[in-house]
Nucleic acid binder design. Structure first.
Lengths: 220, 220
DNA sequence: ATGGTTATTTTGACTATTCAAAATCCGGCG
DNA sequence: CGCCGGATTTTGAATAGTCAAAATAACCAT
């Protein structure tokens, strides 16, 4: 069995690969994502390579193998199902479940995971809109764009928030932009580096590009 | 924070102390309960003593300090609440929850534990009848005797099964002796090393002393 | 092509936990 | 009393992960 440290490295590698699917993940990136010094990432990745979970190119980076990716997806599935479970069944706030799930994802057995999945009626996304990898089969592709890239004045709906930090999630909630909220983007001003959002029946909200880039929408 | 290994040692030490409240727990006992060689138990206990969690008398054994006992009770509380949660909310069988909880007990935060406790309506015992240590305050004493020690022909009820092995628990279930079942002990035969149990509306059940000693009852 | 900047790798060391096996202790028996 | 056997402790070594800091490689600009 993979240790929980190994699981964390694989998961992180997967997430890094998401943002740059073409390239190898450099050790510096991995190290800072994992909160360790670069040397630690190097030696860990070498061990992972020995186990056949990643391929490693010295001085350029690492990439998950087929097997490593499967394991990573499995960890991610546990993480996201647990997050949703914590919100839906135990009533925790969406801003606090990420950290909780970080621990629990390593302690959940297949059997318990299956029960949770059934209890939640086989959900497809977690509380932040992140897709839950299916037990078997490929991750479904999504047709989502950030508030910076989507069409202006088109009917959209908040689909995903890619920043699990409690502070940002609480801000999103306060701004009434929780998952599923219908909205339109009224305007973008590159000079002001801001985006103006209209939610039906509410005064418009202005977001800086930093924040806007972390909120994804899809066409209604 | 105590590592999960430390938590396991403390929990085990507590359980051992239960069966022999007066004495120190010898290293051999502890080691076999923990599934390690005796030398490992010795060195671990020394470390626990350095942290002030146990007192250690070389060549005789160890005992939890006040602080160690508190921690042990906290672990036990998590373990037993998780067991009940798995049975009541996720619908697992009582024969399989012990092993599951063994992992989960180390991954549950205070916040999640509090939610589970509330969801289960602050239960006092786990699925095997073991008392759940309260969040604060002392463990309540119980007035329970095994089928070997209780009164004959008195109205009793199954209160606790102290053998978490799946095989034994499944046997108990098959025999219709689940927690709460009303029964009387009809006779004991030292020669046959057997006990005869009467459950209302069912043919009598005979148990060997080995099995009988692991089933506890209390007066109705 | 030469130097400097920056990322990466190496090296050596440390913690926690474990085992195997040798050394030691202790209580009881003859 | 002295020795035996079983329990306990010690010793030495292994594994997984980690850091600090020195060594190295790669890239870029002049």
């Amino acid at each position: 069995m993979a240790t929980s440290t190994v699981e964390d490295y694989l998961k992180q590698l997967y997430l890094e690969q998401q943002s740059a699917p073409a390239d190898l993940v450099p050790m510096g990136k991995l190290a800072s994502a994992m909160g360790v010094v670069p040397g630690t990432a190097t030696s860990m990745v070498k061990a992972l390579a020995d186990s056949g979970l990643v391929t490693y190119e010295p001085r350029s980076g690492a990439r998950l193998t087929k097997g490593g990716e499967q394991l990573a997806l499995h960890v991610l599935r546990r993480h996201r199902l647990v997050e949703l479970f914590l919100v839906k069944i135990l009533g925790l706030d969406w801003s606090e479940v990420h950290d909780e799930a970080e621990e629990l994802e390593h302690a959940i057995s297949e059997k318990v995971l299956a029960r949770i999945d059934a209890l939640l009626d086989h959900p497809r996304v977690d509380p932040h809109g992140d897709p839950i990898p299916p037990a078997k089969g490929k991750m479904p592709g999504t047709r989502q764009l950030s508030l910076l890239d989507c069409d202006l004045n088109a009917p959209l709906r908040v689909a995903r928030v890619i920043d699990q930090g409690p502070a940002f999630l609480q801000f999103v909630h306060r701004s009434g932009l929780t998952i599923g909220t219908p909205l339109t983007v009224q305007s973008r001003d590159p000079q002001a580096a801001a985006v103006s959002i209209a939610v039906a029946g509410k005064p418009p909200v202005a977001l800086g590009t930093e924040a806007a880039s972390k909120i994804f929408v899809e066409a209604v």
